[in-house]
Amino acid sequence: MIELHHLTKRYGDKLAVDDLSFRIPEGVVTGFLGPNGAGKSTTMRMILDLDRPTSGEVTIGGRHYSGIQDPLRRIGALLEAKAVHPGRTAYDHLLWLAQSNRVPRARVDEVLDLVGLTAVARKRARGFSLGMGQRLGIASALLADPQTLMFDEPVNGLDPEGILWIRNLMKRLAAEGRTVFVSSHLMSEMALTADHLVVIGRGRLLADLPMAEFIKRNSRSSVRLRTPHQEQLLHALHGAGLTAEAGPDGSWEVVDGDPVVLGDLAAAHGVTLHELSPQQASLEEAFMQMTASSVEYHMGAGAAPEQPPPAWGADWDGRKSGKES
C-alpha cells in the first residue's frame, strides 16, 4: 500500500506539491489526474525517492522507497519515455536493469515479447520511435513482475493503436490483481480504464473517490431545444415550471428534462422545434470544471483561438452558468 502523508515539494519559490495526502488503493487502476503543471510527475518522482519531499513523506508498505531491497520487484515505473541511453540496445537496457535487481536474464526476453519489441531487441534505442520508446519503458516497468505499477502519462504522443494497446494492458494488469497508478490529463481516457480517481490541481488534492462515484455525481443530463420561436418556448417552459439555460448558438437547455414532456409541451403551445436532443455532459467537462480554478496557465483571452482545444477550455466558466465545485 502506497501512502502519501502531507507530501509537499517546493522548487525555489514554486510550490509544486502542496500538502498532499492519499493512499493508492490496491488491486485496481487509479487514475491520477490534473492539468499541466499540477504536480503529478513531481509526486511520482517523490514516491520513487528521486526527488526529496520538502516535508511530509511517502511510504510503501510502511517503508521508504530507499529502504526496499530490489525495489523493481515491488514497484515498476514508467516515468518518461526514452530514459534510455540512445547507444544501448533494448536488450542490454533491460539486462542491466534485471541484473541490478537480481531478476533472471530469461525475464528480459519475456518482457520484450510481452511489449512486442522482440524483433528490435538488438537495435540501439537511438532509432526507436516514440511508441517503441514507450514500449521499452513499459517493459522495464514490468521486468521484475511487480505487484504495483506506476505510469506517468503513458499514452502521451501515441497513435490510436498505441493508446488502445496501453489501455488494454492496464486493464489486464488490474485483472491480474495488480495495483496500477497512472497519470493523465485526459478524463475521458481515465473514464475508460480507471476504477479509482485522484485529482490534483496546483499541487493540492481536489478529489479522491471511486470512478463510479465521480461519474454518478458529474454526469448531468439535459435536453437541448432549438426553435425559431424563442419567446413562446420560454413562456411555455415557464408556465410548466421549467427553467432553461441558454446553450450554444441560440439553443436552450433544460437540465434533467424529459424529451417526451418537452416535445408534448412544445406541440401543445404550437412551438416549432428544430432540435430536441438529450445531452450528456461529458466527464471531461466535469473534470475541467473541477480544476478550472487551479489551471496553471490559463490561455490568454486575447490569444485564444476561436475554437479552444478541448483539453484546455479555460473559457469554461464563461460559457456555463450552472457551476459547482
Binding site: D49, L50, Y65, P71, L79, E80, A83, H85
Partner: peptide
C-alpha cells in the same frame, strides 16, 4: 545526458 539516472536510481535507490 540520457535522463537514465532516474531509471538507475529507481532501480538502486541506495545512492
Amino acid at each position: 545526458s540520457s535522463g537514465m539516472i532516474r531509471v538507475s536510481l529507481a532501480a538502486v535507490p541506495q545512492r
